[in-house]
Design a protein around this nucleic acid. Sequence first.
DNA 1: AAGCTACTTAGCTTATTAGCTAATAAACGA
DNA 2: TCGTTTATTAGCTAATAAGCTAAGTAGCTT
Lengths: 97, 97
Amino acid sequence: MASPDAVFKALADPTRREILHLLRDGPLPSGEIAAKFPSAWATISRHLAVLRDAELVTTERNGSSIVYELDTTVFQDAVEHLLNWVQPRGSNAKRRS
Amino acid sequence: MASPDAVFKALADPTRREILHLLRDGPLPSGEIAAKFPSAWATISRHLAVLRDAELVTTERNGSSIVYELDTTVFQDAVEHLLNWVQPRGSNAKRRS
DNA sequence: AAGCTACTTAGCTTATTAGCTAATAAACGA
DNA sequence: TCGTTTATTAGCTAATAAGCTAAGTAGCTT
């Protein structure tokens, strides 16, 4: 499994969060993702590699293009794990409005 | 409200996650927190400042010491916001086992 | 006020990372 | 196989951040 470190570091960058947001409508090839951002293609490609290392996306080759797909299972696991990790114990819980 | 950027950057560091974990049992003064880690007190103090900027903890002066308390409301809001932000739409949802 | 305790801020060094351009790799059509 | 499209990797620079020690601030005690 991807380390929490990798997951949260991946999420710490706004461009990478935008990429995940973009992918919620379905898988996209690297080029189409890069086209949506002002940064150079190579820069986006490396962001995608970070997301893949964190297992937030999966890749699949489709002919000459490589398709990136959101993987929310790992994502949700990481978040749930963290929620439990820091959840107050005893009488420290703050009331949520 | 704290920016998502600040929140996820704060969570990206393992030491800071450990601090949050430590605080789940209740508020602690800076010195007691620092004592639990191998790093210098000044280093922990700055980690605490990052957590405070991200509004993951609140502070309160108590005599000569400054007490840090976990604030899970902001934390949960950020996580929920992100979950919605990247949640797949349409038929892209992967089945969770 | 002088000194002590508790903590933060400043200033520095080192490591990591985002951005770029250029070079490389892999698939495909002529 | 040669060129084109699609995408990644390499190599560089600049910015960010973590670590340290030392200096500064704030409250308490006497």
